[in-house]
Design a protein around this nucleic acid. Structure first.
Lengths: 154, 154
DNA sequence: AAATAATAGTTCGCATGCTATCTATTTTCT
DNA sequence: AGAAAATAGATAGCATGCGAACTATTATTT
C-alpha cells in the first residue's frame, strides 16, 4: 500500500508540495522586491486585470482562492501604493468595487513579464503533456480533498 | 507554450499546490485538535520517532525542511506538553539533543493512525502508478526550483 | 411593516513560515 | 596559542493565511 507517509525521507506528497510552494513564493518575493511588491500582492493585480474593473472584493477573493480578511489586508497595501482604487458600490452599499489605476495597469505588465520568465524557466524541463498531467492530478486531488472535507463535516 | 499563468481560472500549478496544501493543513488541524496538537506540531514527533532519539535540533529541522527558528517555536510547545525532552549535548555544548517521552511515543501511534487514515482516504482514487508519477513530478520540480534558485543567486 | 437572516467588508488575534541578529560555543586559520 | 570564522540555538519582528466577531447594509420571512 502506497501511503504518503510510507517513507519519511520521501515525505508526504502534500507536504512536499507545500515545501515547493514555499520556495516558489520566496523566489517570487525576491523577484518582486525591486518593484516594492510581495508575492501575495502581485496576484490580486493580475486577477483584477483579468476579471476586469469594477468587480467586488468578494469576487476577487473567490478568484484568488483566499478569504475576505486575507484580501482586505493586501488590498490596503495595494491601495496605499496607488495601484488599485476601492469605491463604494452605489447599487449595494455594503460592497466595494475595485479598479486598476494607470500605475496598477503598468504594474500588471511588469508582473506578467517577470512571472512568465520565471515560470518558463522553471518548467523548461517539462513538456506540455507532463504539465497537463500534473495539472490533472492537482485538479483531482483538489476535488478529492474537497469531498473528503465535506464528508468529514457532514 | 504552456505556462502556469496560461489561464487565470486554471491558475498557476504552483499556486494551486499551495491551495491544496492549505486545505490539507486545515484538515489535519481539525483532525488533531482533539489531541491538542496543531498540524505543524505532529510532524516533528513523527520525524523524531523515525530518526531516533538523541538527534540535534539542526538535524530535525533539516529532516522537516524548515529553518531553525521555525522548529524552535514548535519544540517549545511540544516540550511544554511533555512529548519531547530537550537536553544539552555534552560533547557539543552549543547543541541540544531531543528525545521522545513516553507520552510522545504514545502520541506518535495516535498520529500515525490518524494521518494514515486521512491520506488513505485522500488517495483512494489514485493508483500506485499515478502516485509514483506525481511523486516524480514533485521531485523534478523541487530539483528544478533549486537549480533556478541558485542560478539567480549566483 | 417589522423581525429575522444573510451578505460584504473590516478588525482582531492566532498559527506558521521566514530572515536578521544575538549569544555561546566550537572549529579553523595564522 | 590567539584571532577569526563557522555553527547551534534562541529571540524578535515580518508576511500571509485563517476563523471569530463586529458593523452596515440588503434580502427574506412572517
Amino acid at each position: 500500500m502506497t501511503l504518503l507517509t510510507k517513507k519519511i525521507d520521501k515525505q508526504s506528497l502534500l507536504y512536499r508540495m507545500g515545501f515547493l510552494t514555499r520556495r516558489w513564493r520566496q523566489m517570487l518575493d525576491s523577484a518582486f522586491q525591486s518593484l516594492g511588491l510581495t508575492d501575495a500582492a502581485w496576484r490580486p493585480l493580475l486577477h483584477l486585470h483579468h476579471l476586469g474593473d469594477g468587480i467586488k472584493q468578494k469576487d476577487l477573493a473567490a478568484s484568488l482562492g483566499i478569504e475576505g480578511p486575507s484580501l482586505t489586508r493586501i488590498l490596503d497595501q495595494l491601495i496605499a501604493k496607488g495601484f488599485i482604487e476601492r469605491v463604494e458600490d452605489a447599487s449595494d452599499r455594503r460592497a466595494k468595487l475595485l479598479t486598476l489605476s494607470p500605475q496598477g495597469r503598468a504594474m500588471v505588465t511588469e508582473i506578467t513579464g517577470k512571472v512568465s520568465a520565471l515560470e518558463h524557466d522553471l518548467l523548461s524541463t517539462f513538456d506540455d503533456t507532463e504539465i497537463e498531467q500534473m495539472s490533472n492530478f492537482v485538479e483531482r486531488l483538489e476535488k478529492r480533498l474537497q469531498e473528503t472535507r465535506s464528508r468529514l463535516k457532514g
